[in-house]
């Protein structure tokens, strides 16, 4: 007696799991689950990224005061210092701005460094701009235009950057990828449901004679339904959980192998504990959906019997 026979109740009488197609069905469910778990992890990563960037950049603004004037002449240290102090004073007197501070010379050098490639020695001989950072609590374009004018009166080449445009473009791209992910999830779920429905219909066709026989013998619809629920449970439950485990292992390997690799080509699956817990629900949902659609298909097909 096989392990399956030992585990299943005696009322499971049709060998639905035996004929060919079960391994393929098992594999498809496992792959679909793995795919959904990975897409889910990517979605969570994207959401975290958006949250982080928004909290870092939103309501943040900076003013860059270049070290050169309109004619390409270096400002003196006193001129630069005077312009900076006047701009700080201006910002501190406006209700919508707060937390005004200048970035240190080293921090500015760090920001510019990557743009100069590996030849960081240039920085030693270069006059760096001054960067004034502050919080801004309004999106009003008129206010920003007025502020820019007043700043340019103090420092004609100073540039006010609210990061709004850049953040909007970034959010547009990320939300696009997020939407695409949701679309892939919808397509995958639909495909999974079709696979389950057609598998059940195929099994019903293969075992048509046996089903007709037990129907004639007085089997209730729920008895026949139970045959298919046991069959689906036998295949779908392990397939979904194996698929999810495979996805977690794959993501862990990718994360571990490329943790130190400084490249943008390797995806990062930065999911936290709560998100990991939510991902664990994907195989459970796959099982519930599979068994529900399987039951619906069986009931619909059985209605054709007298």
């Amino acid at each position: 007696m096989s392990l399956f026979q030992r585990l299943t109740p005696k009322s499971y009488i049709l060998p639905l799991h035996k004929r060919s197609g079960s391994i393929q069905f098992f594999t498809i469910i496992a792959l679909m689950t793995a795919m959904l778990v990975i897409i889910g992890a990517v979605q969570f990563s994207l959401l975290s990224t958006v949250h982080n960037w928004k909290s870092l950049i939103e309501h943040q603004a900076s003013i860059e005061i270049p070290a050169l004037d309109q004619n390409g002449r270096d400002y003196s240290d006193e001129e630069i210092n005077m312009m900076t102090q006047r701009i700080i004073a201006l910002l501190e007197n406006i209700d919508y701005t707060s937390d005004v501070h200048t970035e240190s010379h080293e921090q500015v050098a760090q920001l510019i460094g990557p743009w100069l490639g590996e030849n960081n020695k240039i920085l030693d001989n270069m006059r760096l701009p001054v960067l004034v950072n502050f919080n801004i609590n309004t999106d009003d374009n008129d206010f920003i235009a007025q502020l820019t004018k007043r700043i340019n009166k103090i420092a004609p080449r100073a540039r006010l950057q609210t990061h709004k445009n850049w953040l909007n473009k970034f959010l547009k791209i990320v939300n696009g990828v997020h939407g695409l992910g949701l679309l892939i999830i919808a397509v995958t779920v639909t495909a999974t449901l079709f696979v389950i429905s057609s598998t059940v219909r195929t099994r019903m066709a293969i075992y048509k004679k046996e089903l007709a026989l037990i129907h004639i013998m007085g089997a209730h619809d729920r008895f026949i339904l139970r045959q298919f629920l046991i069959y689906l449970g036998y295949l779908v439950i392990p397939a979904a959980f194996i698929g999810a485990i495979a996805a977690f292992i794959m993501m862990s390997i990718i994360s571990a192998l490329f943790l130190s690799a400084d490249t943008a080509f390797i995806p990062s699956f930065g999911v936290n504990g709560g998100q990991f817990f939510k991902l664990l629900f994907i195989p459970l949902l796959i099982c519930i959906m599979s068994i529900s659609i399987g039951a619906y298909t069986v009931i619909r097909e059985m209605k054709r019997m007298p």
């Binding site: 005696k10 009322s11 009488i13 049709l14 060998p15 035996k18 046996e210 026989l213 037990i214 013998m217 007085g218 089997a219 209730h220 008895f223």
Partner: peptide, 17 residues
């Protein structure tokens, strides 16, 4: 039902009820 033993075949109507 060829996958069931003689016993299980005969037992089937009783299981159904």
């Amino acid at each position: 039902l060829n996958n069931l033993t003689a016993f299980e075949n005969v037992a089937l109507p009783l299981r159904l009820s």
